[in-house]
Protein backbone atom coordinates (compact mmCIF):
# COMPACT_ATOMS: atom_id res chain seq x y z
CA UNK A 1 0.00 0.00 0.00
CA UNK A 2 2.92 2.31 0.72
CA UNK A 3 3.90 1.97 -2.92
CA UNK A 4 0.64 3.47 -4.10
CA UNK A 5 1.66 7.14 -4.31
CA UNK A 6 5.04 6.19 -5.76
CA UNK A 7 3.35 4.13 -8.42
CA UNK A 8 0.93 6.83 -9.40
CA UNK A 9 3.80 9.31 -9.50
CA UNK A 10 6.04 7.12 -11.63
CA UNK A 11 3.39 5.99 -14.06
CA UNK A 12 1.44 8.74 -15.78
CA UNK A 13 -1.59 6.64 -16.59
CA UNK A 14 -3.40 4.95 -13.77
CA UNK A 15 -3.73 1.81 -15.94
CA UNK A 16 0.03 1.27 -16.14
CA UNK A 17 0.36 2.18 -12.47
CA UNK A 18 -2.01 -0.55 -11.44
CA UNK A 19 -0.28 -3.04 -13.73
CA UNK A 20 2.97 -2.14 -12.00
CA UNK A 21 1.42 -2.56 -8.57
CA UNK A 22 -0.06 -5.93 -9.41
CA UNK A 23 3.20 -7.15 -10.88
CA UNK A 24 4.87 -6.05 -7.66
CA UNK A 25 2.26 -7.66 -5.45
CA UNK A 26 2.40 -11.02 -7.25
CA UNK A 27 6.01 -11.01 -8.34
CA UNK A 28 7.56 -10.50 -4.92
CA UNK A 29 5.95 -13.40 -3.04
CA UNK A 30 6.34 -15.73 -6.01
CA UNK A 31 9.98 -14.80 -6.47
CA UNK A 32 10.85 -15.02 -2.78
CA UNK A 33 9.12 -18.35 -2.25
CA UNK A 34 10.50 -19.85 -5.46
CA UNK A 35 13.96 -18.81 -4.39
CA UNK A 36 13.54 -20.15 -0.87
CA UNK A 37 12.05 -23.34 -2.33
CA UNK A 38 14.99 -23.92 -4.61
CA UNK A 39 17.54 -23.14 -1.91
CA UNK A 40 15.86 -25.51 0.54
CA UNK A 41 16.27 -28.51 -1.77
CA UNK A 42 18.53 -30.90 0.19
CA UNK A 43 21.98 -31.20 -1.40
CA UNK A 44 21.64 -34.97 -1.15
CA UNK A 45 18.99 -34.78 -3.91
CA UNK A 46 21.61 -33.32 -6.23
CA UNK A 47 24.25 -35.85 -5.10
CA UNK A 48 21.97 -38.70 -6.13
CA UNK A 49 21.35 -37.28 -9.59
CA UNK A 50 25.03 -36.41 -10.08
CA UNK A 51 26.28 -39.90 -9.21
CA UNK A 52 23.75 -41.35 -11.66
CA UNK A 53 25.08 -39.23 -14.51
CA UNK A 54 22.66 -36.29 -14.42
CA UNK A 55 23.72 -33.20 -16.39
CA UNK A 56 23.37 -29.64 -15.08
CA UNK A 57 20.17 -29.31 -17.10
CA UNK A 58 18.83 -32.53 -15.59
CA UNK A 59 19.56 -31.21 -12.09
CA UNK A 60 17.51 -28.08 -12.76
CA UNK A 61 14.59 -29.61 -14.67
CA UNK A 62 14.27 -32.94 -12.89
CA UNK A 63 15.44 -32.15 -9.38
CA UNK A 64 15.32 -28.46 -8.44
CA UNK A 65 12.01 -27.56 -10.07
CA UNK A 66 9.90 -30.51 -8.90
CA UNK A 67 11.43 -30.28 -5.42
CA UNK A 68 10.67 -26.54 -5.16
CA UNK A 69 7.17 -26.71 -6.65
CA UNK A 70 5.27 -26.88 -3.31
CA UNK A 71 6.93 -23.60 -2.28
CA UNK A 72 6.19 -22.00 -5.64
CA UNK A 73 2.52 -22.70 -5.07
CA UNK A 74 2.55 -21.02 -1.67
CA UNK A 75 3.99 -17.97 -3.44
CA UNK A 76 1.32 -18.15 -6.14
CA UNK A 77 -1.50 -18.23 -3.58
CA UNK A 78 -0.08 -15.28 -1.69
CA UNK A 79 0.54 -13.44 -4.95
CA UNK A 80 -2.98 -14.05 -6.21
CA UNK A 81 -4.73 -12.75 -3.12
CA UNK A 82 -2.50 -9.73 -2.69
CA UNK A 83 -2.84 -8.93 -6.40
CA UNK A 84 -6.57 -8.91 -5.97
CA UNK A 85 -6.45 -6.58 -2.98
CA UNK A 86 -4.02 -4.26 -4.76
CA UNK A 87 -6.18 -4.22 -7.87
CA UNK A 88 -9.26 -3.17 -5.93
CA UNK A 89 -7.38 -0.48 -4.04
CA UNK A 90 -5.82 0.83 -7.26
CA UNK A 91 -9.24 1.03 -8.80
CA UNK A 92 -10.52 2.95 -5.83
CA UNK A 93 -7.65 5.39 -6.08
CA UNK A 94 -7.39 6.15 -9.75
CA UNK A 95 -8.48 3.67 -12.36
CA UNK A 96 -11.86 4.59 -13.76
CA UNK A 97 -13.04 1.07 -14.26
CA UNK A 98 -13.44 -2.21 -12.47
CA UNK A 99 -15.07 -3.40 -9.31
CA UNK A 100 -13.11 -1.20 -6.93
CA UNK A 101 -14.11 1.84 -8.85
CA UNK A 102 -17.72 0.66 -8.92
CA UNK A 103 -17.58 0.13 -5.17
CA UNK A 104 -16.54 3.75 -4.63
CA UNK A 105 -19.09 5.01 -7.07
CA UNK A 106 -21.96 3.03 -5.53
CA UNK A 107 -20.97 4.21 -2.08
CA UNK A 108 -20.93 7.80 -3.35
CA UNK A 109 -24.53 7.45 -4.52
CA UNK A 110 -25.49 5.67 -1.31
CA UNK A 111 -26.53 2.71 -3.43
CA UNK A 112 -25.69 0.22 -0.73
CA UNK A 113 -27.46 -2.66 -2.40
CA UNK A 114 -25.26 -2.27 -5.47
CA UNK A 115 -22.21 -1.91 -3.26
CA UNK A 116 -22.84 -5.15 -1.45
CA UNK A 117 -23.54 -6.87 -4.73
CA UNK A 118 -20.16 -5.64 -5.98
CA UNK A 119 -18.48 -6.93 -2.82
CA UNK A 120 -20.14 -10.30 -3.32
CA UNK A 121 -18.98 -10.45 -6.94
CA UNK A 122 -15.47 -9.64 -5.75
CA UNK A 123 -15.53 -12.39 -3.14
CA UNK A 124 -16.82 -14.92 -5.68
CA UNK A 125 -14.24 -13.96 -8.32
CA UNK A 126 -11.41 -14.10 -5.80
CA UNK A 127 -12.44 -17.42 -4.31
CA UNK A 128 -13.02 -19.07 -7.69
CA UNK A 129 -9.54 -18.00 -8.79
CA UNK A 130 -8.14 -19.51 -5.60
CA UNK A 131 -10.12 -22.70 -6.20
CA UNK A 132 -8.79 -22.91 -9.74
CA UNK A 133 -5.25 -22.54 -8.46
CA UNK A 134 -5.95 -25.27 -5.88
CA UNK A 135 -7.08 -27.59 -8.69
CA UNK A 136 -3.91 -26.94 -10.66
CA UNK A 137 -1.79 -27.52 -7.57
CA UNK A 138 -3.57 -30.74 -6.59
CA UNK A 139 -2.97 -32.02 -10.07
CA UNK A 140 0.74 -31.13 -10.18
CA UNK A 141 1.46 -32.14 -6.59
CA UNK A 142 -0.67 -35.27 -6.49
CA UNK A 143 2.31 -37.13 -5.02
CA UNK A 144 1.81 -35.20 -1.79
CA UNK A 145 -1.42 -37.09 -1.12
CA UNK A 146 -1.21 -38.48 2.37
CA UNK A 147 1.56 -36.10 3.37
CA UNK A 148 0.85 -33.13 5.59
CA UNK A 149 -0.40 -30.36 3.36
CA UNK A 150 -1.42 -26.87 4.19
Amino acid sequence: MAWLPVAFFLFPSSWSASVFLIALATGIPVAILTWSGVSSVPSSYYDIARTLGGSQRFLVLRVAIPAALPHVFVGLFMGLTSAFVVLVVAEMMGVKAGLGWYLQWAQGWAAYGNMYAALLVMAVVCSSLVTLLFKVRNHLLSWQKGLVRW
Binding site: Y45, D47, I48, V63, P66, A67, W143, Q144, L147
Partner: peptide, 10 residues
Protein backbone atom coordinates in the same frame (compact mmCIF):
# COMPACT_ATOMS: atom_id res chain seq x y z
CA UNK B 1 23.80 -43.51 0.65
CA UNK B 2 23.17 -43.93 4.36
CA UNK B 3 19.74 -42.29 3.83
CA UNK B 4 17.66 -43.74 1.01
CA UNK B 5 16.94 -40.20 -0.34
CA UNK B 6 14.21 -41.17 -2.77
CA UNK B 7 12.53 -38.29 -4.58
CA UNK B 8 9.11 -37.90 -2.93
CA UNK B 9 7.49 -36.71 -6.16
CA UNK B 10 8.44 -39.88 -8.05
Amino acid sequence: FQDPTLYPWR
